[in-house]
Nucleic acid binder design. Structure first.
Lengths: 258, 258
DNA sequence: CGCTCATTTGATTGTTATCAAAAGAAGTGG
DNA sequence: CCACTTCTTTTGATAACAATCAAATGAGCG
């Protein structure tokens, strides 16, 4: 069973798989040539990343990282979850936090390769743009989950998404993947309280949709789960028009009597 | 009082203000030279945009547009609100919907200007990148609102943000701005039911935080509102560390007995 | 006026958060 | 190996919050 904290896949290989999955493949030798693999760092769970390091950007190779926003009263929201193969860039006003033991490669050589005039890096630039687009789509998914979905749906949707993302970089075993996160961490991802998250997980398990064992998640019935959670892959190319769009009002107002 | 559906500001002028506000000013004459203003389109409220038109990208000049995702059972989430000066680009799986009467300029000349080798377009490219960053930050704000904020906070936060965004392009009058949206539309933006949104609005008004009159919103007490809603400007440059980041768990598990 | 749509109100239900505490896991040091 | 600590998961009880249903009121328009 694959361990997300310690699989043997190199940084270049991860990138290659990820780019191939978003239909913008890059020649493996080109990625190898960047020389990412030797420049490693490691972080303890809970460690803040990037701001402490002088590094501007890193490639996540092992473990899970969260882009986190903290509010008052101890409230915390994980904006996005980063999985191996993802680039770590610090957004304004956010912090990147290691959610597990984490290892990274310095991404500076990748940046250098991007600005290279060499024609082989053309494909790299295209892949870079595609990756950015996917990342944006994932953030939009997060908005929909938090804005309009019930606890069950949020959780199912998020887990389906994680499964798919890990699958892109070859870190799943069939319907099972390693997700060594605290329920509290998951609750911050799903915008729920820990207690309610726990009960929701139990519900999904009772329904035969999910299996949980020692940090491993199994999608017991992916079809039914996807249906329940209105999930559709962010990697699918063609435009979906499965749902009926509601029409906007004809004579807008926001008038409010008085 | 400024009317967002029909102010006299040209497309080039809007862009100039917007870029200046994100501290990446572009020479006005350079923007004028693009020739955006003549190529206009108009949309009725409720109209889907872009996919119908052959146009790949448009610049919103008048009115409000929502990036919308529809789910089953008639559920709808507005991912982001676009205000005059914003670029309209269609994301995968989303639709852009005119929330009011809308007018746009074709943004093709802007794209041409971006890929221009001319040195003056260097500033334009920088501004383009900065605008993209801001837009991402706004989406992250939306995540936090929907994930961890109460109805009051969501609304206050969203309205403060809209006020600030409109202010950037000169479409506010002091603390008042034109927001000709249905409460149903607002509820889809805030991830609330219409009824609850209505009651929340009333609450904010009763608290003396908000004023609403015929499609115009007034921030009666911006300081108190911002404090209540944990609002901090996405346009502020320096990193904030106002809140205490919670540390992640030491020994992650997701074990679940049995 | 009569139509339609938007806002508002009341009543009720359903969902989720919160509080408190027990039970289970995992690591530490004796 | 056990006692001890600490963190996590789980359970129960309760309260706060938000959704839903139903209906009345108000605003705008032909």
């Amino acid at each position: 069973m694959i361990n997300i904290l310690h699989h043997g896949v190199s940084a270049a290989e991860l990138l290659g798989r990820k780019f191939a999955a978003s239909r913008t493949p890059v020649d493996p030798s080109c990625l190898q040539a960047l020389g990412l693999d030797p420049l490693r760092s490691a972080f303890e769970p809970g460690a803040g990343m990037l701001s402490a390091q002088g590094r501007a950007m890193q490639l996540l190779t092992d473990g899970l990282v969260g882009e986190v926003r903290c509010l008052n009263r101890g409230r915390r929201q994980i904006l996005s979850l980063r999985v191996p193969g993802d680039l770590l860039v610090l957004g304004e006003g956010e912090t990147l936090v290691a959610l597990t033991h984490v290892r990274t490669s310095d991404a500076a050589p990748l940046l250098a390769g991007l600005s290279d005039a060499c024609p082989t890096s053309q494909a790299l630039r295209r892949a870079w743009v595609a990756a950015g687009r996917i990342e944006q789509a994932l953030l939009r998914n997060q908005v929909v989950r938090l804005g309009r979905m019930s606890a069950c749906e949020r959780l199912g949707h998020a887990l389906l998404e994680i499964h798919e993302r890990l699958g892109q970089v070859g870190l799943v075993t069939g319907m099972t993947f390693h997700l060594p996160l605290t329920q509290e961490t998951l609750s911050d991802l799903a915008g729920l309280s820990v207690v309610h998250l726990n009960r929701t997980l139990q519900g999904l398990r009772r329904e035969g949709l999910l299996g949980l064992r020692r940090g491993y998640v199994t999608l017991m019935d992916r079809i039914r789960l996807a249906e329940m959670a209105c999930y559709s892959s962010p990697y699918a190319a063609p435009l979906r028009q499965s749902e009926r769009p509601r029409e906007a009002p004809r004579a807008p107002g926001l008038a409010m009597a008085s």
